[in-house]
Simulated assay, not measured.
Amino acid sequence: MALLETDDKQDPGLSMPSEKESAAIPERPRSRPGVVAAAVYEHGQRTHDIEIQEAHKWRGREKAVVWIGLHEPDEALLREVQAEFGLPELAIEDANHAHQRPKLEIYGDSIFVVARTAHMGGGEIVFGETHLFVGRGYVVSVRHGPSTSYNLVRQRCEASPAALAHGENYILYSILDFIVDNYMPVVEGIHAEVEELEERVLRDRLDKKDIERLYFLRRSLLRLRNAVVPLVDVCRRHEHLDLPGMDATLHALFRDVTDHVRRVQEDIDTLREVLAFTFEASLMIGQSEQTEISRKLASWAAILAVPTAIAGIYGMNFEDMPELKFKYGYFVILGFIIMVCSMLYRMFRRAKWL
């Protein structure tokens, strides 16, 4: 089974900087509860940290982008953001209630993207949700649940001003790419556990705990697939459609994200097939063992039936029975029992029942 691979064939001018480069940029503290970061970027450079109510002052400036990151905001904060950027009512309702299916919706000159995040925690997949509002001159990200912070994405973008100068859609690409990259360790972690179960089913019979874990992994992969598959269409639409504010040079980057998502989907489907095969193999091995035991029991029952039947007949205490008065009758009957039982034993051994 092939492990996930990474595709580094991107435009070098738009690629993300390394973690070593991004680590040099300090993380800035949040300005208020629910707000992770709010800043203005001009020509790819971070120029101002702002409050939400100041965002409208920077909209419309050439090469200026307002990037606001929110984490589980209350409705009042969302309404404040809506008033600043004129965000659509339906999208605000979705962002407030969460638990949405991954999707992309276009509202005039802005778009609304929903994506599901995933990471491993405590031996299981932990899911979160991200809502992205993208329009001319602004990006608003809203995280729900235990998803990974996007501070690292912000730091990487800030470390590459030339790429960040492409504006809001490059920020959108960076966040989607980060989400998809975080799927890969999840799939690889499950891949290692599935391989271990697959080897064990061929060595030893799986116990009840292993069967429960196998079922749990298959169910978790199904939930992960439901989060990943709709994202393929979201990325594909960015790759092919002329969305508001989309720079044609970014199509290759979104194509790369689409390839990564499809690769994750293929690996999930492969793992689910392997888990199904492992479960079926475990059942077949169990049935084979039960059949073998049944054959052995049936063989020994047939062999023991001979002396049992003869001893039962001669134990009925009738006076007129053959061989009762014969001097060597006991030895003849005993020899007959041994001969018949030996014949049956050889016959069952030849049939591989014993």
Rank of each mutant, 00 (worst) to 15 (best):
E239I: 06
D320R: 13
A252E: 05
W58Y: 14
A2W: 07
G60E: 07
L214W: 06
T117K: 10
S147L: 11
L224F: 06
C341E: 09
S220G: 09
A165F: 11
V232A: 14
F348Y: 04
A301R: 03
V134P: 02
M120Q: 14
D269N: 13
E27D: 04
L283Y: 04
V306S: 12
R154K: 14
S299D: 09
T47Q: 03
A64C: 15
L4H: 14
V306D: 08
E273K: 02
L334E: 15
D210C: 01
A165W: 10
R30H: 11
H43C: 10
V114A: 03
M343T: 05
Q10E: 07
P73S: 13
V332T: 11
A118Y: 01
L176W: 03
G145D: 10
S31M: 03
Y170N: 06
M339C: 15
L222I: 07
A64V: 13
F318G: 14
V140S: 12
V274W: 02
I175S: 08
V228Y: 00
G123K: 00
G123T: 13
W67A: 00
S342Q: 03
D210Y: 04
P307K: 13
E124Q: 02
L241R: 04
A302K: 01
G135H: 05
V142F: 00
A163F: 11
V306N: 05
A159S: 11
